[in-house]
Simulated scan of single mutants.
Amino acid sequence: MRASRAVRDIGSRDDLDVLLRRFYEAAFADPLIGPFFTEIAGTDLDAHLPRITDFWERALFRAAEYRRDAFAPHAALHSARPLTAAHFGRWVQLWHATVDGLHQGPVAERAKAQGERIALAMLRRLGGRDASTDAPEGVGGSGGFVPLAALRLRSVA
């Protein structure tokens, strides 16, 4: 019988660093979204990680300074190769899986919800649609982005 490890909430910048490193390692390896990081952007994880950790520390704890334009790099990627609803949907799936694999609690839930909001906002802005629009093109369609919070997931016994 395996002993289960205690899973705790995201509580510090160090937790975010571990979470984000694991997430980006999975994202880089993913066949759908990995090429955006590895081939198009040529992302250096060690250089990128402190900035993205600042972003999430600010988003979740209001503790870090983050004064960059998070949209600009995504717009540049979109110009090189269009980012679609399927790309953002996969990002959300990987984000949820990574958060759930390491943490549970109110901050972890907030991180997942914030990730969904960010993905949907980016998708809307890249598609040229107003953020107040109910459904950007591709949402809910074949292969499109469906926020995971909108799905009822059931485990099969």
Rank of each mutant, 00 (worst) to 15 (best):
A97I: 12
A108I: 10
R62Y: 12
G101M: 07
T84V: 12
R81Q: 09
R68C: 05
H48Y: 01
T53M: 09
E109Q: 15
R51W: 02
P73N: 07
R110C: 07
W95R: 04
W56R: 09
H87S: 10
A75F: 05
Q93N: 05
T84Y: 00
H87L: 15
G89L: 04
W56C: 13
A97G: 05
F55C: 05
R67V: 06
W95A: 03
V99R: 04
A75Q: 15
H74M: 09
A72M: 08
A97Q: 09
V99D: 00
A86F: 13
R110I: 11
A80C: 10
L60P: 01
R51G: 10
H96W: 15
A80W: 07
E65A: 14
P82K: 03
V107M: 06
W95C: 02
A59T: 08
S79R: 14
L94A: 04
Q104D: 15
L83P: 05
F55N: 14
L77A: 08
T98Q: 01
A86T: 07
A59P: 05
D100S: 14
T84M: 05
A108K: 12
A76K: 07
R67I: 00
W91I: 00
E109T: 13
A86W: 11
G105P: 08
F61T: 06
L94N: 00
F88C: 02
V107P: 00
H87W: 12
R68S: 15
R51P: 00
G105K: 13
A76P: 00
L77F: 01
T84N: 01
R58P: 00
H103D: 00
A72Q: 05
G105M: 14
D54L: 03
A63N: 03
A86G: 08
A80G: 03
V92Y: 01
T53F: 02
L94T: 10
T84L: 13
G101F: 04
A63H: 04
P50W: 10
F55S: 09
L83W: 07
D54R: 04
G105C: 06
Q104H: 14
P106N: 10
A85C: 02
I52E: 03
R90S: 03
A63Y: 06
P106V: 15
T53E: 14
V92C: 03
T98W: 02
L60H: 01
R62K: 13
E57N: 15
P50G: 05
A80K: 13
L77I: 02
H103V: 04
R90M: 06
P73T: 03
L94S: 05
W56D: 07
L94H: 03
R62P: 03
E57C: 09
W95Q: 03
I52W: 05
F61N: 04
A59Y: 01
A108Y: 06
L102M: 08
Q104S: 14
T98V: 08
A70G: 15
L60F: 11
A64Q: 02
Q93A: 10
R51A: 13
H103T: 08
L77G: 04
R51M: 12
